[in-house]
Simulated scan of single mutants.
Amino acid sequence: MSNVILETRGLTKEFNGFTAVDSVDLQVQQGHIHALIGPNGAGKSTFFNLLTHFLPATRGEVLYQGKAIGKLAPNQIACQGLVRSFQISAVFGQMSVLENVRVALQRPLGTSFHFWKPASTLNMLNERAMQLLEAVDLQSFAARKTVELPYGRKRALELATTLALDPKVMLLDEPTQGMGHEDVERVVELIRRAAVGRTVLMVEHNLKVVSSLCDRITVLARGKVLAEGDYPTVSANPQVREAYMGKEAAHV
């Protein structure tokens, strides 16, 4: 299908005889927000690591914009526009919020390792960095040390640094994990805004977030695709209910 931007075919990962991801076929449509959900241990994070080659697949392939990317290094995949975030906060705590975004903006310039140059040489990136901070409602925090930010704001900063790499597809791993209600609502709105003109594939446990945000949902259980569809279809599936709530509760 011409509007499929990211696809897996028979993607499998085995660890010493244990199959964590089992022959997963997935198609992500361009411009969609697509959720990957499932109970703990379903293989979701492993699947993300296979997509970006942080882990090599045992079998199967990943296609991005119609081309196999399984032989590319993670940084090469990111440079092509397939960019991910992580469950664990991945920002530089002792740098300012603005400086974190500037580091991300450096990558396309090829100056990331020019340690001998004064920081003032990066001032040309300030305008774009501020635009990205405004996009995630962090402009008033620009000068603050990142370590001082509340958790929800740190996740918003990660979204800004992801956007700095100008992704075509954003892979978001548990973007609302550990957040209170107010922070969840803020981050959901930021993702919705960031997704305009882009594609998002997200691992997410919060089903309220999934129901309000996602066009399509794939459910994993024990490494296999259990169900796929929009939220009403998936949430009504007895197998999905059993996977999340147990056999007896699923039939109440």
Rank of each mutant, 00 (worst) to 15 (best):
N206P: 06
T162E: 00
A164E: 03
F113D: 08
I5Y: 06
A20V: 03
N123G: 03
L149V: 03
P150H: 14
Y244D: 09
S2R: 10
D22N: 15
A156I: 06
A250L: 14
S112A: 14
D25H: 07
G152H: 01
N123V: 03
A194C: 00
G110I: 14
L171P: 10
T19N: 11
A104I: 03
E134S: 10
L51Q: 10
L98Y: 00
L190Y: 09
N40Q: 02
V210E: 04
H32P: 07
S23G: 07
M202E: 10
I217R: 06
E189S: 01
P167E: 03
N206H: 11
P39R: 02
K247L: 11
A164I: 01
L55K: 08
P238R: 07
V4H: 03
G178A: 05
L105T: 01
V187W: 02
A249I: 09
V188K: 08
P232F: 02
A160Y: 05
L6Y: 02
Y244W: 13
G70K: 00
K44H: 08
I69F: 01
L125Y: 07
Q177H: 07
H32F: 10
G110R: 11
D230H: 06
V147M: 10
Y244N: 15
M124E: 06
L55Y: 15
E185G: 11
S112W: 07
M202D: 13
A142F: 00
E228P: 00
Y151C: 12
Y64G: 01
F48W: 05
L172T: 04
C214L: 08
P175Y: 01
Q29D: 05
G152S: 07
G152Y: 03
Q177E: 07
R59K: 14
D173P: 13
N123S: 08
T111Q: 09
G31C: 12
Y64M: 02
K71E: 15
H34I: 04
A78E: 05
S235G: 11
D166N: 11
T162A: 05
A249N: 12
K117S: 03
K67N: 10
N3H: 10
G10E: 06
V24C: 02
Q65W: 05
A243I: 01
R128A: 13
Q131K: 04
E228I: 00
G10V: 14
